[in-house]
Design a protein around this nucleic acid. Structure first.
Lengths: 339, 339
DNA sequence: CTGAAAGCGCTAACAG
DNA sequence: CTGTTAGCGCTTTCAG
């Protein structure tokens, strides 16, 4: 059925090992035989069987992407496709493929990792959006298997990771609102157990503290990375005795939901409430009003994560374990008082 | 290093073949040995090497997803993540993984397919958004390799595919605008060589024709599936001698761009121009105004595509080669005249 | 019900 | 520079 290295060898009149050498561009091989073998491969339409190759060479040229449980949530957010785009771009450039598997529970998540890692199906693993005390991180560390974090680990300082300075980013966002004259500023956060939520909340708090502003607990709202969260947040906002005049929101999508929800209850952005959010997904510019946001360089996050992993795999001793992708505040209409 | 079937055999006091049988749930094997083997696997922390398994069993439990060239464009659209979500959900349920590889040119695209298919790296392939005379389709047909189309082939009626009735969908969208009293209706299309563009344009034309309305060529605008296209479309619209009062737009993202662009030049949706678009990405509801759109069941498209492919792979003779996912028009504010 | 043996397609010493 | 020889870890006849 399938044409193998043996067939090529027979046609070219050489041994299988010679064919293998041609395949891997072995230096010491006569140009004449190279040509013969190449021709034979051509006429037979030979293509190496990757499984067989991997079995002996012990690498797969494949990277595993372990999607956090509740991929539903993740996928609903354009952040994900953008980061994936960056990953694929880098991976394919280096001739790597990406193997994805999602999971619906912690158990499934571990199973997926085990299939990939113990089954020797991938050379390295990318982990997204780690949680506090993430069991997957622990497992991978225990296996001593190459992996890179998109985000950071609270517990392990030494794991390789690509991240933003989320604390500083939230600090900047908050200060921007303070500079606009706001005194009562709220914060809409992501899932509590995610490291990124923690970091951004801390940045917000620090900015408020330094400006001598009250940091009231009922101004901090927890949400998921979904639009519904924006809607939900509205009712909480409306019921506050002293309503904030501005919000720092941890995700553009939530911001979309909030702007819409506020509009429905008769509050206008930015006239009644100013908004700054995070990520700069491409639609944030097209919102009405356009959303002020912290551009965190999503594409680069993905690209650099894969690049770091591939570097690590190629044996290059990567001294710098932490890569920080710079962020920048994009001021748009949602945080500009029209006066 | 890695624990193999032999190690398990030794510990359990059986032969490697017996371990293999336990692994594949061979019926005729004594419960006692099953238990012994299972225990040994447990204590050793055994996990089958998937490469070795694939090499002999000739299947990989992996599906290949070949992303169209210019994945950039694709990824920028939430359509993609939603369809991917559906695919992953179905694949993981059936214990399949997804192998992705993108390409930047036609050449790279074919190489990627060859690596996957000839390299025996995947059991089947999913093709998205086929073009007219798509060379990948031809190739796969030539190889007689299992694949499923998300979309449809113009040339081959017999290939398995999952699709919408795009003609009818565009017909419905256009008729909705006609029913609202519009007479001058424009159409913003996607890339010309894509089958879906053709189908939707045809549906629009048919509706116009049946209503006895003029179908002017300068009312049909070509665009990519990007926001910029929306902006771009605006300038064309503004320069028309007889401006349409409504548009059918082939994608929500383009609609976003157009609404924003129209707003900037002082035209209001729906008061000055009504809009109906396609896809119902989750943000279309949160637009200002909310966008009327044809829900094409993106998640289901992805889910059913994988399901069909897996059915095919399991040898089940799939009589029904074409699956049509139903669509429905969601009327929102962008097409409702406020009077 | 279980073991022995052969081999999937490829690579990697080791000789020549 | 090239052929020979062993496997990589697993499945699968074929005999017991």
């Amino acid at each position: 059925m399938s044409v193998t290295i043996k067939d090529v060898a027979r046609i070219a009149g050489v041994s299988p090992s010679t064919v293998s050498r041609v395949l891997s561009n072995h230096p010491k091989i006569s140009p004449a035989t190279v040509r013969k073998v190449r021709e034979a491969m051509e006429t037979l339409g030979y293509h190496p069987n990757i499984m067989a190759k991997s079995l002996v060479s012990k690498n797969t040229n494949t990277l595993g992407l372990v999607l956090p449980r509740s991929a539903e949530e993740l996928f609903a957010n354009p952040f994900f496709s953008e980061v994936l785009r960056g990953m694929l771009a880098c991976a394919n450039l280096a001739q790597y493929d990406l193997l994805m598997s999602s999971a619906n529970s912690q158990k499934e998540e571990l199973e997926a990792v085990n299939r990939m890692v113990l089954g020797r199906r991938v050379d390295g693993v990318i982990l997204m959006a780690p949680r506090k005390n993430d069991p997957i991180v622990e497992k991978l560390l225990e296996y001593d298997f190459p992996f890179v974090l998109l985000g950071r680990s609270l517990e392990h300082q030494d794991v390789h990771c690509v991240n933003n300075d989320n604390l500083k980013a939230a600090y900047d966002a908050t200060n921007h609102l303070i500079a606009q004259g706001h005194r009562r500023i709220g914060f809409v956060s992501g899932p509590k157990d995610m490291v990124v939520s923690e970091d951004r909340l801390e940045g917000y708090r620090r900015a408020m503290r330094e400006a001598g502003l009250a940091c009231r607990e009922d101004w901090v709202i927890n949400a998921d990375f979904l639009q519904e969260s924006g809607f939900h947040a509205i009712s909480l906002v409306m019921n506050l005795p002293e309503r904030p005049t501005a919000f720092v929101i941890t995700d553009d999508i939530i911001a979309f939901g909030m702007i819409r929800g506020l509009y429905d209850v008769g509050l206008r952005v930015p006239d009644d409430i100013s908004i700054v959010s995070f990520n700069n997904i491409n639609l944030s510019e097209l919102s009405n009003p356009p959303i002020s946001t912290i551009d965190i360089g999503i594409y680069h996050l993905g690209y650099l994560t894969v690049q770091l992993l591939i570097r690590k795999l190629s044996g290059e001793s990567v001294s710098q374990t932490q890569i920080t992708v710079p962020h920048r505040l994009l001021v748009r209409k949602s945080s500009m008082k029209t006066m």
